[in-house]
Amino acid sequence: MRTYKVALVGTGGIAAIHADNLSRAKDRVELVAACDVDEARLAAFSDEHGIVGRYQDLTQLLAEAKPDIVHLCTPPMLHIDQAIECLEAGVHVLSEKPPALSLADFDRLNTAQAVGGTQFSCVFQHRFGDASAAAQALIGGSDFGRPLVARCDTLWYRPDSYFELPWRGSWKAEGGGPTMGHGIHQFDLLLHLLGPWTEVTAIASRQARATSTEDLSVALVRFENGAVATLINSLLSPRETSDIRIDCEFATIELSHLYGYSTDNWTLTPAPGHESTVANAWSGQPLERGSGHSAQFLAMYDALDAGKPLPAGADSARQTLELAAAIYASAFTGVPVRRGDIVPGHPFYAGMDGAGLGTRVLDETALSVPSPV
Rank of each mutant, 00 (worst) to 15 (best):
Y4D: 01
V9M: 13
G12Q: 05
D20W: 05
N21D: 11
K26R: 14
V29W: 07
E39T: 14
L42S: 01
H49V: 04
Q56H: 11
D57W: 00
L62I: 14
E64W: 00
I69K: 08
H79Y: 06
I84D: 02
E88A: 02
G90K: 04
K97Y: 10
A104W: 04
D107G: 11
A114T: 12
A114H: 10
C122L: 06
Q125E: 15
G129W: 08
A137Y: 10
G141C: 07
D143N: 14
F144E: 08
R146T: 15
P159V: 02
F163C: 04
L165Q: 14
W167G: 02
S170F: 08
W171K: 11
A173Q: 10
G183P: 04
F187H: 04
V200E: 06
I203D: 14
A210F: 00
T211I: 07
D215N: 05
V221T: 12
R222T: 11
L235R: 01
R239F: 02
E240K: 01
I246M: 09
D247E: 15
F250Y: 15
E254L: 01
L258F: 11
W266L: 02
A281R: 07
H293E: 01
L310W: 08
A314C: 12
S316G: 00
L321D: 06
A325S: 15
T333R: 10
V335Y: 12
V337L: 02
V343K: 11
Y349D: 06
M352I: 02
D353H: 07
D353T: 04
A355V: 13
L357N: 11
R360E: 15
L367G: 09
